[in-house]
């Protein structure tokens, strides 16, 4: 009897399938009427938590800052979906936000590009932004943004080489790709330019989230003689915990990590996505929905080296850092990236 019931349910489902296939679907046109008084509405999809002190937080903080700049909730509103590390769920979220008529939908993760490529053509009146990349797929309603993370990496590398007494630096990366790879290359270039004899040991943990792998990598670097560490991705908080206990110096990137260990964090490359966000918003309000890619760097203020005020940075080191920043800004320092 029960088996019959299952078969019955299964048949019903097949019927539902066929019906769904025959049924007319509504592709949900993004009904977007731009009354001037309406607040600008942004939806953002983030791969990790908004408080990861790294990649996702950098975007969340930027949105909060832009909201403030624009004059609060009456002028700009934003919603978010965090922890969207499942690419598939992120795609559903992007499509859903698009059908709700948001003015700008930000897919803040390089893994979301493929989904965006599918979705954006269905919503020609909605603007999308994808980071971190330079690829807009040639679509008129897609912006791309990325960070020249090697620039801040270079400056951090310069300071690290100056501060190291042992002549060994340790770098902890997640997977050798994208933003992380660029930062690490910049860091090595900066360190070597400052002290050609310096040793830079690099480990990749194979994960963006494995905090204990990052911690053990830090321990290993310290045992191998490193007295200055840096690293990128949200897992590095584990490494900072170890650096704090072992009293070795730390350089941060993506967000300001000074609060985690005020005694040992020297400086951070902090992303200020608001620089590109305000440009995008301005363009959208003037009717240009995409087709352009942006890069934050030291020169345009999208990347800022934040020195930890509680760390007593020797003046000559700070000067070397400022010189490096100037050099990168005026183009006299060029950072070669691996092809």
């Amino acid at each position: 009897m029960r088996k019959k019931l299952y078969v019955f349910v299964a048949v019903l489902l097949v019927a539902a399938f066929v019906l769904a296939a025959c049924g007319k679907s509504t592709p949900a046109p993004a009904a977007k009427t731009e009354a001037p008084k309406k607040p600008f509405r942004i939806a953002v999809v983030l791969p990790s938590s908004i408080n990861d002190l790294a990649f996702s937080q950098s975007m969340y903080d930027a949105l909060v800052a832009v909201q403030k700049q624009m004059g609060g909730k009456d002028a700009m509103q934003f919603v978010y979906s965090d922890g969207m590390y499942k690419v598939d769920d992120a795609a559903a979220a992007i499509r859903d936000y698009a059908s709700q008529g948001y003015d700008l939908i930000i897919a803040h993760g390089s893994q979301y590009g493929s989904s965006l490529q599918e979705i954006a053509p269905d919503f020609p009146n909605t603007s999308f932004a994808w980071g971190t990349t330079v690829d807009t797929f040639g679509m008129p309603n897609v912006f791309a943004y990325e960070a020249a993370s090697e620039q801040g990496g270079y400056v951090n590398g310069v300071m690290a080489a100056k501060l190291s007494k042992s002549g060994v630096l340790g770098v902890i990366g997640p997977i050798e790709t994208g933003d992380a790879s660029r930062y690490v290359q910049g860091f090595i270039a900066g360190a070597k330019a400052t002290n050609p004899n310096i040793k830079v040991n690099v480990t990749w943990t194979g994960s963006f989230s494995d905090v204990s792998a990052a911690a053990e990598a830090a321990n290993t670097h310290i045992s191998a003689g490193a007295d200055v560490l840096t690293g990128t991705a949200q897992m590095v908080v584990g490494a900072i915990g170890v650096a704090k206990e072992k009293n070795v110096l730390w350089f941060g990137t993506q967000a300001d990590q000074s609060s985690l260990a005020p005694n040992i964090v020297v400086a951070n490359q902090v992303y200020h996505w608001e620089v590109v966000l305000t440009k995008m918003i301005d363009m959208i309000q003037h009717g240009k929905l995409g087709g352009q890619s942006f890069t934050i760097n030291l020169k345009n203020g999208g990347e800022v080296i934040e020195y930890n005020p509680k760390f007593n940075l020797p003046p000559d080191v700070k000067k070397a850092a400022e010189d490096a920043i100037k050099g990168i800004e005026d183009g006299s320092i060029k950072i070669e990236l691996k092809k």
Binding site: V87, D89, Q111, E118, P174, F208, S209
Partner: peptide, 17 residues
């Protein structure tokens, strides 16, 4: 669904769990 493989470094990123 995706028409390509993408990794975010974890299994769930691709498989959705």
């Amino acid at each position: 669904v995706n028409y390509r493989m993408i990794t975010d470094g974890s299994a769930t990123g691709f498989t959705g769990g």
